[in-house]
Amino acid sequence: MLRRLLILIFIGFASPLLGQVVIPSLDPVQPTELSSALAWRIGSTVGVESEAFNRDEDASHDTGVENVKSAVLIAYQPGNVVGEIYYSPYRKTLTYDSDYSSIEWTDDDASLLELRLAIRGNRQVSVGIGYGKFEYSPSFYNEKYEESYYEGSFSVRLLDGLFFAGAGMQRFTVNLGSSDTIKYNTLISGVALQMGDPTDVIFKTEAAYKQIPRTESENDVLSTVRKSTVSQFNMELMTGALFASFEYTNKLTEEARGSDDNQNDITSRYGVGLKLGAMTIGLYRNAHKIDYQDDDIEYDTYQATLGISFL
């Protein structure tokens, strides 16, 4: 039973807790969370992304750097309709002991595919639809874990493009082989501010909030989805060829692991980037902290993006 519980409780994935909710990142390789944000992209993009973990930071393991995630993103914008494909065929999963004595990245097969489509109307509103599927074959369990969702969202652009607001819903279905299913809806909303000119100096900031309800599994094989909230704040500045970004994400899980205590998963991401003509390069440090009861665990991952954009 403990191993079954591990599937939902003691794992983490090499990805941010939330993507861009209201408007897209200045780094065109960063995927959106709500598809309606996609409509505010400028041009089309083809990009790749890689995330690494420095094992020197965990004394219980060998030294060296290992790749924990690879992904490709394609965004195509022929007019006021925009499509985005985000595919991560290689993702390591992070497991950690319940007493936080060690962490480990496992090589179990895991992949993520996300498809999004959005339409922009009158340069004032956008509506988007999305689909995502995450597949994971844990070595400690003989059935495949699958998580899929449908998403619908919209956003509005106000005050001559200065202010944006968006909201959406994701309908999740989680399957563990044929043994069990959990279904739940998440609500996501956010506001954003954007000032400047993309060809000169531009500043954007965004605050977003995601709500995940407590949901019981149908056959008690999967662990219950705990009620949780994700708060995210980010800001980005681009001046000519350089850009810098900061993002803070906090996932608060109530009654984590069946106890009365909450768990905080905090990620602070610091990034710098370079835009050389059509090419964009981004380098990020993700500082993760998992805080539960009197114990906590900290680790860093490093992310690099490379994208080619064209109008």
């Binding site: 006021n80 109307g121 009158n122 509103v125 509506v127 449908y150 619908g152 309908r171």
Partner: peptide, 17 residues
């Protein structure tokens, strides 16, 4: 309940829950 983009003419897109 749903949200859609419905112009006077052209492409419309939306979703319902």
């Amino acid at each position: 309940a749903g949200v859609l983009w419905v112009p006077q003419n052209g492409l419309t897109l939306g979703f319902y829950f």
